[in-house]
Design a protein around this nucleic acid. Structure first.
Lengths: 205, 205
DNA sequence: TATTTAATAGAGGGAACGCTCTAACTATAA
DNA sequence: TTATAGTTAGAGCGTTCCCTCTATTAAATA
């Protein structure tokens, strides 16, 4: 008999997912066809359906992957530097996005947009976004609470609310290259750092 | 002979555009089919092609309409109340979005997302977004300059840059209901008002 | 009223779609 | 070596897609 090799299986899934990502990037979730994805992954349609039940499942898996990554990256940065400020964290994340190398799991902002648009009309996808948001919000809120205790952050701010606002700001940042591709990103980051620092600062504004 | 009636023609276009908007809302630009749109507009496919060259043209017209509206709304608010603060303006815009009545030209945030996702891979659409952004940015930057002269705004801020940041923040706000539909929007608006006020305030942070 | 043309309907062509199905191939366990 | 089952290919089914085409009706000028 022959046993299924879970490592190879997972690897193949990854490979398909990566090909799908490139197709989604240029044609969107609905615009990209199964045969496009198959051609890019260099497999046949029948083959693909051994790894994913249907197209929807590919989209879901891709969203899950990209979104998991964002959360884990935040945790990773915070653990590596527990005394980091929130604006410092934001700067770090933004730097990630500027890096030329796309990285294996990094989700380009185009795909992020695609996921959001899908979530606006696809309840399961919306739930994925919400879970992800709650998860990050919790991490940031905990951070803010500690920062408040140390006197580094305005104690009158509600941690959960402020965290959600910070997440929204980061969302906005992600859209900036679309709004204005000529924007001097490092400069804009500086402005954003100012923005967040002033927002959180315990001193009266 | 019979002459074409431009008024009726334009009205019909509007009607089709509205039907298309509802279809796009539930299925996305690519997901919505011509026959869906025709069914909802209660016309035949052949008929539709008397008003639009192709599906792309419908999408483009819809984006243009929604986006024109946003710009004119900002101008309108500013002209009605020349002494409004920037956070006040933002509050006003957010109130618009909260209103239950969808209004004739108002673009729901789902469609805004759809447009952004499309812009990420469709150069003409991207250009539309950029034109629109520059237009709003200019209005806000002019406003900030005046506010700086009056001493109401931190003079060290670069007006164009700050304007772009403010636009980004508003983008983030638009995504908030997707991130967390249970968020208490009026409360969050209060937090955002604080954020922007502290950002722009001339007093040292 | 006669004529011209805009306005409308709807069938269906050609292509692409997602997905299934059969069948062959290959690597492993017995 | 043989049997088993994981792996792969690719044809093609049924559907849907965007759009064109022809035909009919309605309205406005001459």
């Amino acid at each position: 008999m022959r046993k299924i090799d879970p490592v190879k299986h997972e690897e193949k899934r990854r490979q398909i997912l990566q090909a799908a990502g490139q197709c989604f990037l240029s044609d969107g979730f609905r615009g990209a066809s199964i045969s496009d994805i198959c051609a890019r992954a260099d497999i046949s349609p029948g083959h693909l359906y051994h790894y994913f039940d249907n197209k929807e499942a590919i989209v879901a898996a891709m969203a899950e992957m990209g979104i998991e990554y964002a959360t884990s990256r935040i945790r990773q940065i915070m653990e590596a530097d527990p005394d980091i400020t929130l604006s410092g964290l934001m700067e770090r994340l933004a730097e990630d996005k500027l890096r030329r190398s796309p990285g294996p799991d990094r989700m380009p902002y185009q795909l992020f947009l695609e996921i959001l648009a899908e979530a606006a009309r696809n309840p399961p996808m919306a739930e994925l976004i919400r879970r992800h948001t709650r998860s990050i919000q919790k991490v940031l809120a905990d951070f803010l609470r500690q920062s408040q205790l140390r006197g580094h952050t305005d104690p009158s701010l509600h941690p959960e609310e402020a965290a959600l606002v910070v997440i929204s700001i980061m969302d906005g940042v992600r859209l900036m290259p679309l709004r204005d591709p000529t924007a001097d990103v490092p400069r804009m980051l500086g402005v954003l750092k100012t923005l967040i620092d002033r927002f959180l600062s315990p001193k009266r504004s």
